[in-house]
């Protein structure tokens, strides 16, 4: 199992947003992609999750080729993600955000739902119990009845990660999870990701703008600039790479 990407390429108009991207993400790996704004990081995620169809290249999840499949099929194959700008189901309750994610394992059909058969009640009770257990693992159980959109920012991030994990993915993609967080929240987030990585049997691919997060979490990182990988390797080495320093110095935010 794991994710293997070869020669992934996508252009919009004349601009090549992602150019020959390769990735080898093992079973329980935790890797990062860093790079300045507009480097094509989120586009990589959008290509992996089928939001955009790649112009060239292949994405394999274990034995299966997922590139070219529609988003929902890719998600069902076992790739879940979070979004840079949080995309919760804001008006649904915290609990329903999780229960909804279990839809593929609902275990009842339309007629059973419409007429509330015994099986419906059994399965629904199971879904509810599973969701609550899941929420409890993320410390969100006491928020279950609140609207997801009314949670504080840090908890929305946590709920989004919890929701992605509820689908039972083999690969989790996190798109700038630390964006907009204060240092204390970032610290909590790092612990959360480490815990998720330990407790759930999956691989994690992380996009991050803030280098400390990646330095602490990832064994290996790739640096993207203008759609191309300009460096890869252990984070401590990569940040010393002159190309990387140059790419980051083009921005107001220098590497830490």
């Amino acid at each position: 199992m794991g994710l293997r990407i070869t020669d992934l390429t996508k252009s919009f108009g004349g601009l090549t947003a992602v150019d020959g991207f390769n990735l080898e993400l093992g079973d329980r790996d935790l890797q990062g992609i860093i790079g300045p704004n507009g480097a094509g990081k989120t586009t990589v995620f959008n290509l992996i999750t089928g939001v955009y169809a790649p112009d060239r290249g292949q994405i394999q999840l274990g034995e299966h080729t997922v590139s070219g499949l529609p988003s929902d099929a890719i998600a069902r194959a076992g790739i879940a993600r979070t979004f840079q700008n949080i995309r919760l189901f804001a008006q649904m309750t915290v609990l329903d955000n999780i229960t909804m994610a279990l839809h593929a394992r609902a275990g009842y059909g339309l007629w059973e739902a419409a007429f509330r058969t015994g099986n419906f009640h059994r399965q629904e009770a199971r879904l509810l119990a599973e969701s609550r257990e899941h929420l409890a693992r993320f410390g969100l159980l006491e928020r279950q009845r609140e609207q997801a959109g009314s949670l504080p920012y840090g908890e929305q991030r946590r709920l989004e990660i919890a929701r992605a994990l509820a689908t039972g993915p083999k690969v989790l993609l996190l798109d700038e999870p630390a964006a907009g967080m204060n240092p204390r929240e970032v610290e909590e987030l790092i612990q959360l990701i480490q815990q998720v990585h330990r407790d759930f049997s999956l691989a994690i691919l992380l996009i991050e703008h803030q280098l400390p997060v990646v330095m602490e979490l990832c064994r290996e990182v790739q640096v993207l600039d203008f759609g191309q990988t300009i460096a890869s390797g252990a984070p401590q080495e990569v940040v010393r790479n002159p190309l990387v320093i140059e790419a980051y110095l083009g921005e107001e935010e220098a590497p830490a």
């Binding site: 999750t49 998600a75 979004f83 839809h103 929701r163």
Partner: peptide
């Protein structure tokens, strides 16, 4: 609430 998120939840 969010069609893209729903789609990416399968």
């Amino acid at each position: 609430e969010n069609a893209i998120a729903a789609e990416l939840m399968g």
